[in-house]
Amino acid sequence: MSRLSASAATGRRRKRAVRWLPIAPATLLLLLFLAGPIGYCVYIAFTDMRLTGSSAVDFVGFANFRRAFADPAFRNAVWLTLVFTVLSSLVGQNTLGLALAALMRRASRPVRTVTGALVITAWVLPEIVAAFLLYAFFRREGTLNAILDRLHLPAQNWLFTLPVLAVSFANVWRGTAFSMLIYSAALAEIPKDIEEAAEVDGASGARRFWHITLPMIRRSIGTNLMLNTLQTLSVFGLIWAMTRGGPGDRSQTLPVFMYDQAFLKSLIGYGTAVALLLLLVGSLFSVVYLRLMKVDV
């Protein structure tokens, strides 16, 4: 009797295992090409691996990290990453996206459609094309200076004088559509009668927005800030194609710094340690994001 029930239990377990079999290919790919490299990343970060030269790889403990924190070039990269993230993601994409979404609710239909189409086109364009367009826009002989000339304002070589500002603007141009879509959806969910009630009560537009609209979409704001920041942290192609991190190292954010150290200076170990730090910051943001979303899975 007991043997019979035991074999029934094995059978059930086997059946259950077969049911979950379809998950295997995806899991295998994720383990091989995502978990594997992350594990490898942790390993290399503690070694002195180089691209060229000696094949012997030594374990060096935290030397790469100590070196990073003492390296002015690394601190420069952290600082520029912060500036780039705050300017383009927190201030630029987020605020502009919210403004666009709020204005779109009031605007007439054709204007709304045209604006939406333009903003989204900038978003769907491949990264490298966006980089070329903004490069053309900011160059000394580019469109921005042509416009400034018309207005009798001083022109300058933006990619040389203010490279971080130029790449931040490029990121705003390219990434605002995402915030706009999120905020459009969030604003559409606010019940009409709440806004109308406040309007009847005589609250001005700005006060209505500050005291009613913003609190009601605060969760979307949180999510959007998280996702924007995560995305901005990993921007490489845009900056690389526009300035290659230069002039000098003045637009060298962490991903560019990482690439530069690992491949142009051949310090794979050191570059990977920087990558690991970037990954840690990214994971931290991801966890906060998951908590914020209170995902129901």
Partner: peptide, 29 residues
Amino acid sequence: SRLARPYLLTILFTTCLPITAIMVPVYGL
């Protein structure tokens, strides 16, 4: 299954990771 929720949370967590950061080890591998 007891494992479905942790699996999905891991998946969602991975969607957020900066892929850029692991390109150096991927190249090495």
